[in-house]
């Protein structure tokens, strides 16, 4: 298991997990979201290639109402 942070919260994910595994687990597959890993954008097309490393800092965002 790897300790990572997702949207500021600590969590453990199985070793070898890709970004796509995390998004699937969170129910975000197919949603209008964007992902940042350690301050860098993870393009949608790379979700299945980019693997999660220990201490990764992941941000997942969506659009909400705002001015």
């Amino acid at each position: 298991m790897n300790n990572i942070r997702v949207n500021g919260e600590s969590c453990k994910v199985p070793g070898g997990w890709r970004v796509s595994d995390l998004l699937l687990d969170l129910g975000h597959i197919g949603g209008r979201i964007a992902v940042e890993r350690n301050g860098e954008i993870v393009p949608r097309s790379d979700y299945e290639q980019v693997s999660l490393q220990a201490n990764d800092n992941i941000e997942i965002v969506s659009a909400i109402g705002g001015g």
Partner: peptide, 9 residues
């Protein structure tokens, strides 16, 4: 306009 915010885990 829209805002960009963390999804609620």
């Amino acid at each position: 306009t829209v805002a960009i915010r963390r999804t609620n885990i």
